[in-house]
Design a protein around this nucleic acid. Structure first.
Length: 125
DNA sequence: GCATTGACGAAGG
DNA sequence: CCCTTCGCCAATG
């Protein structure tokens, strides 16, 4: 099929009801409590595996998400709280994670590999 | 239309 | 453990 819709037009259309952001938010909202995932994992699940940056970018817009998105459970592949600054002037993100029994040290999730929640594996229904 | 930026990822020093 | 370089896509100026 060569009837590919203009990407720009498509985006403009979906921006009203359904956007790349909402896809990310939808996945993020399904992250179990006490678990964490990475931008790359979500990107891979959405098919945009080449651009984990876009996921982070969507997370930045999560402030517009309703209901709010547990973005504090979404971190980078190294288990580092890369976006903690976006939660508050202090380590708000870390506090939220520790509240969910997620240990954080040096802005990094302890045993991140064990707490890692991969939507592409856990959420493939 | 080009340049810069960005809550990334991986590899190298 | 810390920093640098490259690649990636989309938004923004």
């Amino acid at each position: 099929m060569n009837n590919k819709p203009n990407k720009k037009q498509h985006i403009k259309d979906i921006t009203k009801t359904h956007s790349f952001f909402e896809d990310v938010w939808d996945v993020a909202r399904q992250i179990p409590k006490g678990r964490v995932t990475s931008y790359g994992a979500i990107a891979n699940y959405l098919g945009t595996k080449m651009s984990a940056r876009m996921v982070g970018w969507a997370m930045g817009a999560s402030v517009n998400a309703k209901p709010k998105v547990p973005a504090h459970r979404v971190i980078n592949s190294a288990g580092l709280l890369s976006g903690k600054v976006h939660f508050g002037p202090n380590n708000e993100m870390q506090k939220l994670l520790e509240k969910e029994k997620v240990k954080v040290e040096k802005d990094k999730v302890v045993e991140f590999n064990k707490l890692f929640w991969d939507p592409a594996k856990e959420l493939m229904l």
